[in-house]
């Protein structure tokens, strides 16, 4: 038996470590966005590797650097950006479940590709939920504060279900150019030439966060008839590619605002929003546009 409550003591956070789950769907009428894991596919894989439901919260680690010490024995899994990881100096595998004993320390280095690593724990990170979710929404400020050194993350009771897989094959992440698929609309008529959205090589800006990725490249122009016009604010979805008056697109991620005041010219496919959420500043990105 351990001498402490089951939990993870935070020894280092890296640039940003947040508690995330699948967010708060259905509250847009209160002005509350969904938030939740930026790369939902990787978050879900972590839950499956531990044989638990998607309700269990995990830690979303941006650019590695996290270190946690176990209070009690905990079953863990790392998914998303493959940050090299060790437990008391011994390497542990990515996208696989592993046991960490009481008193042992997990350390994540900086991933060579990808941005966000998910640390899932069997039982889930059991902080109090806000409006039905433990996700931190960096735009609205809802949910738990970012992790700080000295925090002890309580771990919930394990579920009655058991893991039935130890290791999952995952597509390797690249630091090279990525292609994300998008559907044109709803406001493609606010671009002088929508094809340029696909033809332009974009670079992920360092001014990107969980709200959205800014894309740098040759600015897109509005048609003559739209110059000086304003679009009344309207509802936006995750994956929306919004083009402000300046012409450099913003791709909305998990913490996007409920409504936006600039035209959304295309929307990225759900699976590819996960891919975009793993793009690091400086990474090359192209948009594969469907005109259907």
């Amino acid at each position: 038996m351990s001498i402490c409550e089951l939990g993870l003591e935070v020894l280092a956070t890296g640039p940003l470590a947040l508690i995330q789950d699948l967010g708060r769907p259905g509250l847009a009428s209160m002005g509350v966005g969904r938030s939740g894991a930026a790369d939902r596919g990787s978050f879900r894989l972590g839950a499956r590797l531990l044989g638990q439901s998607y309700d269990a919260a995990a830690v979303e680690v941006t650019l590695g650097g996290l270190a946690v010490r176990a209070c009690g024995d905990v079953l863990l899994a790392l998914t998303g950006a493959p940050a090299p990881a060790t437990v008391n100096g011994t390497e542990v595998a990515h996208a696989a479940s592993f046991l960490m004993r009481h008193g042992q320390t997990l350390r994540l280095a900086i991933p060579q590709a990808g941005l966000r690593t998910y640390l899932s724990v069997r039982g889930g990170v059991d902080v109090p939920a806000v409006l039905g979710s433990r996700a931190t929404d960096v735009l609205s400020g809802l949910g738990p504060a970012p992790l700080k050194v000295g925090d002890v993350l309580p771990v919930g009771a394990p579920p009655r279900t058991f893991p039935n897989v130890e290791l999952a094959p995952v597509r390797s992440m690249t630091a090279g150019p990525i292609v994300i698929r998008a559907l044109l609309g709803p406001r493609a008529d606010w671009l002088a030439d929508p094809h340029l959205l696909a033809a332009t090589p974009w670079t992920v800006s360092s001014r990107s966060d969980r709200v959205g990725i800014r894309l740098e490249g040759r600015a897109l122009r509005r048609p003559e008839a739209r110059l000086g016009q304003e679009l009344p604010s309207e509802g936006v979805v995750r994956g929306s590619i919004q083009v402000p008056a300046g012409g450099e697109p913003v791709l909305f991620l998990a913490d996007h605002p409920v409504t936006g005041g600039y035209p959304v010219v295309a929307v990225v496919r759900d699976a590819d929003v996960d891919l975009a959420a793993q793009a690091v500043p400086g990474q090359a990105l192209r948009i594969d546009l469907s005109f259907s």
Binding site: P25, L27, A28, S29, R34, P232, E234, G235, V237, T259
Partner: peptide, 17 residues
Amino acid sequence: VVDVVPAARTLLVVVHE
């Protein structure tokens, strides 16, 4: 349908993933 977002001129209707 999971979310309905009214605005000044539009209504956004969102379904589950």
